[in-house]
Design a protein around this nucleic acid. Structure first.
Lengths: 133, 133
DNA sequence: CATATAATAGTAACTATTATCATTATTGGA
DNA sequence: TCCAATAATGATAATAGTTACTATTATATG
């Protein structure tokens, strides 16, 4: 049975009002302003719980800490190799790749995770301006 | 300047003759039969080096240890939720998703990583046979 | 208001991986 | 073949990220 906790509410609010996919550490730093005695364990525990409840999404990167996303609607993520930031990618659904994967496969494809990477708009602008000068 | 090492050769051979995408720990256990005093650090160092050289591929899963693949030709991986094994997925290229992602995006999409998950053929067979009985 | 129990803070423990460093192995030249 | 230069090693410590433990506190329910 789930009981309310102010810390959990604060954690959820923090995630919801950000669009930069913060890490557990960032959430910890952020809510310490409101709850100076909050424990990092509490942050991890609640982030996992909220993700299980489907209220937030957990983004597992290859290396580096996991990130969390308050936007649970289907969308994709772009990882910038230059600055390391993770940004949302507005694009048409590519769910058909699951059908392609199922085609000659004897198992059951239940889903897939796709991450895009490259150079983000900001870093690309910097790159172009430094080359033209 | 790169120097030969028997340990590295053994590690590479081990990876090459397997198709189950072993972890560093599995490689370590495997080559200890030939080199009982090999260090886990040596295994990690060489797996990273071989991956950098493009001789093997590193597969980063969301959670759990990284896996390594001796097959460097382009292909996809399927993660079974039931038994945890990682198997190759023979399917047509889905590189066009990078074009889709680029469409309304101001940055430069240089690539993407896609992992499929669900129930593998073996686990699916078990599931069906247990239901029909 | 009392009881049951979920959640917490603080901390230890854990997993996967990387770094350090003295010693050993490999390599290319005399 | 020997030697010097240096890459690689084994052993171990250190690190990052996360989970587990436990006594105490907060929440919910009758």
């Amino acid at each position: 049975m789930l009981k309310y906790s102010r810390q959990r509410e604060s954690i959820k609010n923090f995630i919801m009002q950000r669009s930069d996919h913060p890490t557990a550490e960032t959430v910890y730093m952020g809510i310490r302003k409101e709850y100076p005695h909050v424990s990092l364990g509490t942050v991890y525990r609640n982030l996992s719980l909220l993700a299980e409840l489907g209220e937030i999404r957990k983004i597992s990167v290859g290396d580096g800490p996991d990130r969390f996303d308050g936007n649970t609607s289907p969308h994709y993520h772009f990882f910038c190799k230059e600055c390391g930031q993770v940004i949302d990618l507005a694009m048409d659904s590519i769910d058909h790749i699951n059908v392609i994967a199922s085609h000659r496969f004897g198992g059951r494809v239940e889903g897939s995770v796709t991450h895009f990477f490259g150079t983000c708009p900001e870093c690309l602008a910097k790159e172009i301006s430094s080359k033209s000068s």
